[in-house]
């Protein structure tokens, strides 16, 4: 791909900025991947026909959700809260993530914006009445943190244990 792209690439238009203090951070690749996998699972569970109960497994007792200003504490309450939430359909338009500096193990800050619909759409919505079904814009931020790894079992190889991420913080607002 690289070779072919180089041949056909028109002159780059990107703003050239001198960044003397830029550092290349290969470890960010892993963080991107973890966040991306998380988003896929999170919205798939959230938007399932009856919402997937596994969504509650992504939270734990220390988790906090702020949903449109309503604070909900702990996995159990969050689960009950989501059980009362109408069916949803999210579509991510933009997302970004960072490793949170100074955290060990590394926590990940993820921000998402996109469009969302709630409820089931009446099947026979007349064309002229489409006003009723306008998507909202949502903005959501997560802090993901891996669970401390269990003591390494005798015989198990060090470093083979998978990182298992939880949602430590989740804030969501309708913003448009």
């Amino acid at each position: 791909m690289a070779a072919r792209d180089k041949q056909l690439a028109p002159p780059a238009k990107k703003q050239q900025v001198h960044r003397p203090n830029k550092i290349d951070r290969p470890e960010v690749d892993y963080v991107n991947r973890a966040a991306e996998g998380f988003l896929q699972i999170y919205y798939e569970c959230m938007d399932g026909p009856q919402r997937d109960a596994n969504i509650a497994e992504l939270y734990r007792d220390t988790s906090v959700l702020i949903w449109n200003g309503e604070t909900v504490n702990g996995a159990q309450q969050i689960k009950e809260f989501y059980a009362k939430m109408p069916q949803s359909k999210h579509e991510i338009q933009s997302w970004d993530c960072h490793p949170v500096p100074g955290t060990n193990p590394t926590a990940i800050l993820v921000t998402v914006s996109g469009i969302v619909l709630h409820g089931e759409m009446p099947p026979k919505m007349p064309q002229t009445k489409k006003h009723g079904v306008l998507h909202r814009i949502f903005s959501q931020s997560f802090v993901l943190t891996p669970e401390p790894k269990p003591m390494i079992q005798p015989g198990a190889e060090a470093g083979q244990e998978a990182d298992r991420y939880f949602i430590r913080a989740d804030t969501m607002r309708f913003v448009g």
Partner: peptide, 13 residues
């Protein structure tokens, strides 16, 4: 990379 507690299988609504 894993997420959450061990997911229940089969998934339940």
């Amino acid at each position: 990379i894993k997420y959450g507690v061990a997911p229940t299988t089969p998934r339940v609504p």
